[in-house]
Write a protein that binds this DNA or RNA. Sequence first.
DNA 1: AGGCAGGTGGCCA
DNA 2: TGGCCACCTGCC
Length: 329
Amino acid sequence: MTDSKPSLGRGWSDWQRLTGWIPSATVLAETLDGGQAFRWNRSVVGGVPSLSAKALATAEPRDVWTGQWSDCVAQLRLDGTALEWRAPAAISKRVSTALPTYLGGDTDWSALADSLPWRSDPHLAECIRAFPGLCILRQPFGETLLGFLCSATKQIVQIKQMLALIAERHGTPLVELADLSAFSGVGVNTAHLRRLPTWPELAAIPENDLRSCLLGFRAKFIAETARFLAARPGWLDETERLPYPQAKARLLELPGVGEKVADCVLLFGAGRLEAFPVDTWILKSLARRYSLADWKPAQLAQFGRAHFGPKAGLAQQCLFSWERKFGTR
DNA sequence: AGGCAGGTGGCCA
DNA sequence: TGGCCACCTGCC
């Protein structure tokens, strides 16, 4: 079977360079799979496939990240110092437009981190040094809300499983079924190439069907939030456009959305860098590194905004990543 | 083999 | 306002 012509609509586009953001492997992993987003997975491609396949021992093994958001799916890899991407050929045009925005627009993340008060804060300096150029993703608002409604007292692996199941069982395919056969052997489970259901779609799913996607008591919150939104067309879009304080106040009206989830949605799903989510990791971080043991979450949030300034959300993510990776003791 | 986990809402002083 | 506790259930 020959496939000499460039494939139109089948398989993946060629790898293309992404200009602007050049993360290390660590920072790329931390950005895509460090708790901001829950729809990225790493696979290892290349290297020595088997003992007998000496001839196939070609390229160095390297990580390829596959991720989905909205009606997009993309793969990312590091080639030397450049970040490269590709997408299913059928949607590569759409992805080429959406990907830069998803990765934080044309923000200079190193410059932004440099604007944080690290000069007078040794621990913050250490966290920034550990994850130089760490990026705050700009994810779809509604999907970010869904993701963090799943997050209560769950670890990242489990949140990823919930969302994968929701997409698999209740989402529509991202690529035409006819194109899916071209995806075997590239580290992609084609069953997972489905977009997450939208909120109107979620409103039509019985709570028990949600519950069976490993959601537990979170299913009730999602079902109730879906009903709330279904009764208010345009409410979520308006909320996304509101200034931070008003947007947060509105999100807090949703069942299952408290301070922490609201801040996560605004930080990772709306680019509001003034949001400062206080979770257990930040609780530990501030208690241990800033001697703020026994402070309550609301006080810590106030401290965070006052101490780290208008881009406190980026500082939060640096502290969070550091604490999760190095602070386990 | 059980305790625990990126929280929230409701109830009580 | 502040503190406690139930809520589900699959992982480490």
